[in-house]
Design a protein around this nucleic acid. Structure first.
Ligand SMILES: [Zn+2]
Ligand SMILES: [Zn+2]
Length: 171
DNA sequence: AAGGACGTAAAC
DNA sequence: GTTTACGTCCTT
C-alpha cells in the first residue's frame, strides 16, 4: 500500500442487508472527491489526483457524485475482488482530468452565488452582446452575470471542509 | 484589452 | 437525452 492508501481509511461502514438482485455498490462519504471517467475512478484530494482504480468491468457505467467513494462492491465476486488495496495505485497525473497540462491542480468550475442582484434577475435582456451571441458565445446575459463570478477566480477565500457529514447512502 | 468562439462541466 | 453558461483560447 502506498501513501495514497491512507486516504482510503473509511470512517463509516455499511452492511448490505437485503438482496436486490443487482450489482450493488457500498459507498461512504469521506474527505476527498471521487471523479468517474469511463472505467477509471479518480481520487482527488485538494484538487490533486492522488490515485485511481480502474478496470473493474463489473462496475462499468457506474456514476458517482463528488464526495462518494466506492468502498465495496457486493453481489459480484469479480467486483468485490477488484476493489481491494491492490486495485489502488498512484495515478498517472498526466492522465487525470483534474490535472492540467502544466501539472498544477485544475480549477473547479465556479457556480453563481444566487443572491447578488444579477443572479436574481430572471429574464435575459435579449440585446446585450452575450444575448446576441448566445448561439456561439454560450455566455449568460450581461445583466445576469453573477458579481462573484466577475471577480477573478481564486480572489476570494473559501473554507474547506475536511470533516464531511456521515454517509447517508442507503441501499 | 475586449469581444467572440469553442469545449464541455454541471444541471436538468 | 437537452440546456445552461464557465473557463479558455482565438481574433481583432
Ligand atoms: Zn442580455
Ligand atoms: Zn451572484
Amino acid at each position: 500500500m502506498t501513501e495514497a492508501g491512507r486516504w482510503w481509511k473509511h470512517t463509516h461502514t455499511h452492511t448490505h442487508t437485503k438482496d436486490c438482485g443487482e450489482t450493488c455498490v457500498q459507498v461512504c462519504v469521506i474527505s476527498f472527491l471521487v471523479r468517474v471517467s469511463a472505467m477509471i475512478v479518480w481520487l482527488v484530494c485538494d484538487n490533486i489526483c492522488v490515485g485511481t482504480f480502474s478496470a473493474i468491468p463489473a462496475l462499468g457505467g457506474i456514476s458517482l457524485p463528488p464526495g462518494v467513494i466506492v468502498m465495496t462492491a457486493l453481489h459480484s465476486p469479480a467486483a468485490s475482488a477488484a476493489v481491494t488495496d491492490s486495485a489502488f495505485q498512484i495515478a498517472n497525473l498526466a492522465d487525470c482530468p483534474q490535472n492540467n497540462s502544466s501539472g498544477n491542480p485544475a480549477k473547479k468550475k465556479r457556480k453563481r452565488c444566487g443572491v447578488c442582484a444579477p443572479c436574481r434577475r430572471l429574464i435575459n435582456c435579449g440585446v446585450c452582446s452575450s444575448c446576441r451571441n448566445r448561439k456561439t458565445g454560450h455566455q449568460i446575459c450581461k445583466f445576469r452575470k453573477c458579481e462573484e463570478l466577475k471577480k477573478k477566480a481564486g480572489s476570494s477565500l473559501e473554507v474547506r471542509h475536511h470533516t464531511l457529514p456521515p454517509c447517508t447512502q442507503k441501499h
